[in-house]
């Protein structure tokens, strides 16, 4: 299937983790998945951290060559437009935070539109400062659209409190997502819950927590 999924949002809203989960889901459904790490603003905790994991799952990763190095250079050494034009690939683009990160997307806007099957998902977490209220999330969403020259097609409600996430925490965000959805006239593509909560609840998509600090990983 030829499809492009662009993931945007506030710093720390969980974009990279959502991108990785969608990639994993695609690979498990037999799709030919390529993930592009388009983050040129964030030095640590990024999709490129999952290089080995993606390799094991047969997911191709394209990242700036300076990701996770000491070169703090916002440069892309690949052509996203050419990658997006590839037939039979589900391309997932993990964009850097806020409108600052979305600037990198703007350059490829026309080519992404040309691919015909483009979805652009806006990831929100109501427990992040500056997107706590629906109007704040709305304002940032439009800033990202202005910077990227692209329009969102849906919202991903990824509200969580890190390790302290509970069923009550994720449930308390449903109303927030609904209000944002009504304000901007876009559907909520899905609400997430970390899989370790073990929720069997059709309102939530259970997601794996793949991006985490070194001490939280298995020894």
């Amino acid at each position: 299937m030829h499809k492009v999924t662009v993931i945007t949002g506030h710093y720390g809203s969980g974009k990279s983790n959502i991108s990785a989960n969608l990639a994993l889901e695609g690979a498990q459904n037999g799709e030919n998945v390529t993930v592009v790490d388009l983050d040129i603003v964030n030095p640590y905790f990024r999709t490129a951290d999952l290089k080995d994991f993606f390799g094991e799952k047969g997911i191709e990763l394209i990242a700036p060559s300076y990701a996770n190095t000491n070169l703090d250079i916002p440069a892309l050494n690949f052509d996203l437009g050419l990658i997006a034009a590839k037939e039979d690939v589900h391309l997932i683009v993990d964009v850097g935070g806020d409108d600052d990160g979305a600037v990198a997307l703007g350059r490829f806007a026309q080519q992404l539109k040309d691919c015909g099957n483009l979805e652009m998902l806006y990831v929100v977490n109501r427990f992040r400062y500056m997107t706590r209220e629906p109007y704040e999330a709305q304002e940032l969403m439009y800033k990202i659209e202005n910077a990227s020259h692209l329009k969102h097609t849906g919202i991903v409600n990824n509200s969580n409190l890190g390790e302290e996430t509970t069923k009550e925490i994720v449930e308390s965000s449903l109303e927030y997502a609904k209000e944002l959805s009504q304000k901007v006239g876009l559907p909520v593509a899905f609400n997430t819950a970390p899989d370790y909560l073990g929720l069997e609840d059709r309102r939530f998509k259970n997601v794996k927590v793949l991006i985490k600090p070194i001490w939280a990983k298995d020894i």
Partner: peptide, 10 residues
């Protein structure tokens, strides 16, 4: 350090 500065916690 950079790790503390960049990581997110409640």
């Amino acid at each position: 350090d950079g790790l503390l500065g960049q990581m997110m916690e409640p």
